[in-house]
Amino acid sequence: MLSFIYAAGGPATISPPTLIIDIALMAMLVVVAFAIVRMRSLFAIVMLQGVYSLMCAAWFVTLDAVDVAFTEAAVGAGISTVLMLSAMLLTDRQSAPVGAKKSLGPLLVCVLAGAAMFYAIPDMPAYGDANSPANTGPGMEYMTAAVTDVEIPNIVTAVLASYRGYDTMAETVVIFMAGLGVLLLLGLNGNAGFWQAKVQGQNIFSLTAPRTRILTSTEDKPETEPPAPDEAAPPKPKPKRKPAAAKKRAAKKPAAKKTAAKKPAAKKTGGKGSAS
């Protein structure tokens, strides 16, 4: 194992004890990952994901990526476990078994992606190689430039917030968007998602209700819907066009109802639904 890692050539500067810790942590990561894949109890899976994150964090510490480790510990092991648990409570405690056929595709993708990475190993710079491009290019330049440009001891913060602050802004927007998505789709009080779109003020669905049901006779246009109290509902074109005409149509409506006997019931429910 050791020789495999050193094999890529170049001076490996890591000390063996760190390497042992690295290998131990990665071995545990693999074990936990397999446990997560094999497990059916969602509660255990969520907990194991927390464990996985925590071990990742420990591993990042041995790689001297303290900031990343901190984030991983706070987000992965900390709050996301709680969030996953609260989401799990809404679904089920057990995951349904997945057939072998269904898991074949993802397995293939994983194997291919992994094989591709292994394919690249011979040409990779050695682990911890001081002369690798990543350690000599702009990455190293930050180390020298940040001291005078930004004068912040923590280079990670300097890169994150100043040199690549624009990336961080976009990341913030990603998080903002995630929050906005939750607000839009779930709502904060657990009561979102029951509103239904209506074609001209009526509930129809492409499959449940054929379109002919709303194709009402000549004059019975949905503009005649009584305006809902909150501007909630009917997608009627705003009435500013010709209020008089709208009224006239409203007056005509009863007549139209007679011709289309089936119509009124559907329409009434549609109207009510939209008003409430």
């Binding site: 409570l89 930004v150 100043s162 657990g190």
Partner: peptide, 26 residues
């Protein structure tokens, strides 16, 4: 600048995390 910018991140992240928790917890 860095402090201002990071404060912005703090606000967004904190509120979004709470938002997700509220959304599921409620």
């Amino acid at each position: 600048g860095i402090i201002c910018v990071e404060l912005g991140v703090l606000f967004t992240v904190a509120t979004v995390m709470v938002a997700i928790f509220y959304a599921f917890g409620s």
